[in-house]
Amino acid sequence: MKKAAGKTKINPDAGKINQVLAKYKGNKGALIPALQEVQVALGFLSQDSLRAISQGLAIPLSQIYGVATFYTQFRLKPIGQHLVRVCHGTACHVGGAEKVSAAIEAGLGVRDGETTADGKFTVESVACLGCCSLAPVMMVDNDTFGRLTPESAIKAVKEY
């Protein structure tokens, strides 16, 4: 889909959204997978995309907003280039996750949930990544890092 005609006002995201909608139209239980795929395509769920999904799947916008704000996976704001998720599960908590978070937040100059000014990193605390035996753990995008110390954590992040 590389036509992208210069003059038309078509939202560049519309193509991606329509692809997802075409796949799920008429399927029962389609809302959550549709939201997930649109988020993968756009990086977040924009207001426009929620409206398009509402029309495409014939589900009221209010209901879609309800679902999108219920689940922690969905984000209504764009995120940085890399997503740093610091695990705060039980084993990580016992193993010093708070110090890991503090080091990353200090090193990048942001607080939990925020994005760095240059738009490179978004930092977020999450409940459990399921790598408890390697606690404390974090994920940067899809890479997992285990047995962290505050120093090794910020070092690994800065290599991105």
Binding site: G29, L31, I59, Y71, T72, F74
Partner: peptide, 24 residues
Amino acid sequence: KEGAGAFVCGEETALMASIEGQRG
């Protein structure tokens, strides 16, 4: 079906609501 991050969806009726595309 991939969950979307809600602990309560481990409860069976919430899990079903989630599969159906609703709040869990």
